[in-house]
Design a protein around this nucleic acid. Structure first.
Lengths: 195, 195
DNA sequence: AATTAACACTAGCGCTTGCTTGGTTAGCCC
DNA sequence: GGGCTAACCAAGCAAGCGCTAGTGTTAATT
């Protein structure tokens, strides 16, 4: 029970830190701010984390871990066609971007604030995630769904997707699924695949 | 002469600050760092700028101003067809992203660090730039070059373009023109327009 | 009843931060 | 050559920073 509680408590603290990192940025977020939002004193924070850097790393790791899990799940349930897997990946990416929004915004904006140690640790998670995309885009390319160099296509698509955090309003009328469909339609020049 | 020199001196200082903001981030860049790179003492910095915020604002303003000028010029010289203007805008955007790379990276990453005053000042420049894109994308959409909702398409395209600062290597073998062509090809499903 | 471990608190150290102040220098104009 | 101004410097202030040391407090385990 101790371990389970410690773990869920830790996740809660990470969630709180993530929100602050988004609003204030990593550098402007002080340990005193975080402690206040967590309901403890600033000194107590260092019982849970070695230093401020470790909190940043934990926030990003959490987000990437979830993204990887969601993408794998989406692929396993997707129609086993190039188009089906492409749809699934785009949808999964947008869903993660929303459900773990804070963590991903931090990953996108504060990546440079990581020290070398944390970065090399996290880069493996990112590579694993990109490997999934690599295969899906290459299959789509071979099937004639995507024009041009698959590597460039992957980067363009991921760029378009990640950019959505800057303008997409989750409270608005448009669902992430419809947004995903729109992107795939724009790229493939053909409407969504039949169910 | 005094005015001209003062102005060019100021631009030089802004350029130096921009480079530091990219390498270190705005918050981690201290006034002492900037002063050192500029060859003056930290106190002297406040003879040129009211405060640190003003430097950030100046960096971003400079980049946006150039982007707007380049885009307008590109459109004026472009083939007067939907495809020609689309090509021109994509190419111009990538070119600006490279020639004023530091300023644009700062604009993309440090936008949130602006205070309300600076932000509302800069937002007009951004709106003017986006208005150019709006027209170009809508024309391309009507001409059947781009599929789906023009507003979404614009956001996807700008996302894909802006994301290039994260992976494109200006020293590498690929030219920005070829990259521009590749993106347009991917979206329109047809090779570059004839000269 | 004694021990342990997890968690929190108080207090503050050593350092850096953005910015101010008061004064100096060099070039320009009438 | 006296007055003006832009540009710079030396010195330092007040505030805030990340982090540490030492000390309870609580609850489960022995």
């Amino acid at each position: 029970m101790t371990l389970v509680n410690a773990s869920s408590r830790r996740k809660e603290l990470i969630r709180i830190a993530a929100r602050l990192f988004v609003v204030e940025g990593f550098d402007r977020t002080t340990v005193r701010m975080m402690a206040k939002d967590m309901g403890i004193k600033s000194g107590s924070l260092f019982h849970h984390f070695r230093d401020k850097q470790e909190i940043l790393c934990a926030v990003i790791e959490e987000g990437m871990h979830n993204a990887l899990a969601l993408a794998n799940h989406a692929l396993s349930e997707a129609h086993d066609t190039p188009r089906g897997r492409l749809d699934a990946m785009v949808r999964a990416h947008l869903e993660t971007l929303l459900t773990d929004r804070n963590a991903h915004v931090v990953a996108l904006y504060e990546w440079r604030r990581l020290d070398d140690e944390s970065r090399s640790h996290l880069v493996h998670l990112r590579d694993a995630y990109e490997a999934l995309w690599k295969e899906v885009i290459e299959d789509a390319s071979e099937a004639g769904l995507v024009y041009g160099d698959p590597l460039s296509a992957r980067r363009f698509v991921l760029g378009a997707l990640n950019w959505t955090v800057r303008w997409y309003d989750p409270e608005g009328p448009r669902s992430p699924e419809s947004l995903a469909q729109e992107l795939v339609t724009m790229i493939t020049h053909s409407p969504a695949s039949p169910a």
